[in-house]
């Protein structure tokens, strides 16, 4: 379990990193937290001939919380975002989800943007970005573009990042007022990738009825599966929502696979259960939010 040979680049600025990526094109791979890439290299499942290590690019180590949302730079570690009180105030979902990302030592090193680019359909942060309708900013030598979450996750472990591009930041928009969020998952062991799970967002109307409800499911498709459940919640207060119908609506919309940890049938069942739990939590949090207004 040692990586094959590669050439190592250690830029200290975004410009230098982009130059290295432009030069190496499809043969270059960005190293940030390394929590997925290093094992892939050591198992020789990936063999890029160039590694562009951005850990010295200090300008990417940013967390900017504004009323409209949180922009996370490419070097912001999971742990830093998780602990950011400013980020949590704008968007509690970040902390709710990050607490479920692996274990503290992995969160100390791994990055939020790295997790998005890695695009593991079982990972929490892609689901969060998808649920909120966020975006990823991709820079290349001489330009940059902002890619919406819906277009960013193109398949299992596949994202819209092109050769020569560097994901410099991700933007997580804040939901409207009277909204609440939650993350629910079941993992085989504490900190494992979820067998099933989801991020949920509920927005209440002025009468505290559910005006909008949405979930983004993990581990049940090639990319996060966003499901709008506003109709299923029937614009009722949480206490009288027909939750069985909501669970059924979720189960109808997903097509999970079975694997060595769970059958497809169990995943489908579990996703319905967790959707209801997450939506109830989110509705409760939205109620608290509304009461604070």
């Amino acid at each position: 379990m040692k990586p094959p040979p590669f050439e190592y680049h250690a830029p200290v600025s975004v410009d230098e990193a982009l130059a290295a990526l432009a030069e190496t094109g499809p043969h270059g791979k960005v190293l940030a937290g390394g929590q997925s890439l290093i094992p892939l290299l050591n198992m020789r499942l990936a063999a890029p001939s160039h590694l562009v290590d951005i850990n010295r690019v200090g300008e990417l180590n940013t967390i900017a919380a504004r009323p409209g949302g949180v922009r996370v730079g490419a070097l912001a570690r999971h742990a830093a975002v998780e602990r950011s009180a400013e980020a949590a105030a704008v968007l509690p979902l970040l902390r709710q989800a990050l607490a479920l990302v692996a274990h503290p030592v992995i969160r100390n090193r791994g990055t939020v943007v790295g997790s998005l680019v890695h695009a593991d359909p079982s990972a929490e942060m892609p689901a969060v970005l998808a649920l909120l309708g966020g975006s990823v900013r991709l820079a290349r030598l001489g330009g940059e573009r902002e890619v919406a979450a819906a277009d960013f996750f193109t398949g299992p472990m596949e994202s819209a990042v092109e050769p020569g591009e560097l994901a410099v930041s991700a933007f997580f928009p804040a939901p409207p007022p009277r909204s609440g969020t939650a993350f629910q998952e079941v993992a085989r062991r504490h900190g494992d990738y979820a067998v099933a799970g989801m991020a949920a967002l509920v927005t209440l109307d002025e009468d505290l009825r559910i005006a909008a409800a949405r979930v983004a499911c993990v581990s049940v498709g090639p990319a996060p599966v966003v499901i709008d459940l506003s109709d299923a919640c029937d614009r009722r207060p949480a206490a009288s929502v027909p939750w069985d119908a909501v669970a059924a609506a979720v189960r109808d919309r997903i097509d999970p696979d079975g694997d060595i940890h769970a059958t497809a049938e169990y995943r489908r069942h579990l996703t319905g259960v967790l959707a209801v739990r997450a939506l109830k939590d989110a509705a409760r949090n939205a109620g608290t939010e509304a009461a604070d207004e």
Partner: peptide, 11 residues
């Protein structure tokens, strides 16, 4: 026995 196994037994 995993949760998935137990679910299958219940079904």
């Amino acid at each position: 026995i995993s949760p998935s196994d137990l679910h299958t037994l219940r079904l």
